[in-house]
């Protein structure tokens, strides 16, 4: 799956869960520091991303996904 496609899909989820405008969800942004997303919302985002992209995001991997770009890369590489 193309990076742009994943970014767009992930931005939709972030907007739905956390109310961040889709345009603000860009690869260099930190979920916690820039987008003000807490650990509870991150769990919701991960579950929705798993369903949408058909990936598995184990908790220890989730902890490494600091930025939107980290998440896009992980999803792109692990999509079955």
């Amino acid at each position: 799956m193309a990076n742009e496609e994943v970014l767009s899909g992930l931005a939709d989820i972030v907007e739905e869960v956390a109310g961040v405008a889709k345009d603000d969800v860009t690869v260099e942004k930190s979920f916690v520091d820039d987008l003000d997303i807490d650990s509870l919302s991150m769990v919701e985002i991960a579950v929705q991303a798993e369903d949408k992209f058909g990936v598995k995001i184990p908790d220890d991997e989730l902890a490494n996904l600091k930025t939107v770009g980290d998440a896009v890369d992980y999803i792109t590489k692990n999509t079955v």
């Binding site: 650990s39 509870l40 919302s41 919701e44 579950v47």
Partner: peptide, 10 residues
């Protein structure tokens, strides 16, 4: 379980 909200308790 996966569908249970992490916000359930609060």
């Amino acid at each position: 379980l996966r569908k249970v909200s992490p916000l359930t308790v609060p």
